[in-house]
Design a protein around this nucleic acid. Structure first.
Lengths: 163, 163
DNA sequence: AACATATTGACATTCCCTGACCAATTGGTA
DNA sequence: TACCAATTGGTCAGGGAATGTCAATATGTT
């Protein structure tokens, strides 16, 4: 049930684990996955954005290429940049989830902490406008506790398990 | 007797007896039972609620899915009691804080996790009624990140330090 | 009858993927 | 130099595929 974009993303990230920088041709990658070249752009623009810690250069024409660079920062700096620069006044759930996943991949948070954060920002627990603060908070905390309990109940799973 | 919902419920629960986590597609399940897809949502929202010990995630679009997780009610009895009994529909900030503090003292959560929870439920980040969901979420996440950064920046402090 | 529960269907939202068209770079040729 | 053809990547609108929401309706219970 996994999706083409996930495969492409995983492929690129596996290369980025060995090198901090990967260079390739869009068409070549598209042929490897049997998809339209623009699909590559879609993956890059949704999963390898600057906000997520990647930097991309490219060149057209003969000998053209796409270069994907992983930006490594120390954890404190990364977190502070997220707080100060990346997270705007408004943040949609999917963006938030990607950010948290990145924090986890960079080992800036533990699995348990990432789960808590996911739980706290889920649309499920956020208020219809008229609800009062206390009700909202109860929902958030319940959701966080459940996320944590769920993690504990499968503690024997893979150490660096998926989220 | 209204059978359909009961059948769907039983079907899901039978799967959950073998795995602690089940992933499926809403439309597929609806076809299997010959009902409207939204019927699945009804069953999930009435019979697989957090209070009953279930945690649900989902994703839309191509490759979308619904993931239903069962929480081990025995192992996590304390957490479930909190969710079901202690935390009412409404919870004021001070009550929430002492609850989290207790979790930490019982070593049910790490210091980092407790900080995150405190951050998520703080009055500071909860909405004035008219703000929209995204803005609320941004505030929550920022606050959690700050709590985390603050914890990291004094990593050398006492192991079981004060909150 | 009145109330609670169940079910449907229309519509909204989100994510994925493609194809047509556009832009830039290179190399060749007059 | 001027121009053209070939070769790359970029962008965007649109359609398809999946879940979410909600009001209306049907069904069951007391």
């Amino acid at each position: 049930m996994s999706i083409l974009s996930d495969h492409i993303e995983a492929f690129i990230k596996s290369m980025l684990e060995e090198m901090a920088q990967v260079e390739m041709q869009r068409g070549e990658l598209a042929r490897r996955f049997g998809c339209a070249p623009s699909q590559i752009n879609y993956v890059l623009s949704t999963r390898f954005t600057p906000n997520l810690g990647y930097y991309i250069e490219s060149k057209r024409g003969g000998g053209g290429y796409i270069r994907i660079m992983r930006i490594d920062m120390n954890k404190d700096a990364y977190v502070m940049e997220l707080v100060n620069e990346v997270i705007a006044e408004s943040l949609r759930e999917q963006q938030a989830r990607s950010l948290i996943a990145q924090l986890y991949e960079k080992r800036a948070v533990t699995l348990g902490e990432a789960r808590l954060m996911m739980a706290a920002i889920s649309d499920k627990v956020l208020p219809a406008p008229q609800e009062n603060r206390d009700a909202v908070r109860a929902g958030i905390l319940k959701n966080m506790l459940l996320a944590l309990a769920n993690e504990m109940s499968r503690k024997e799973a893979t150490e660096h398990g998926t989220m």
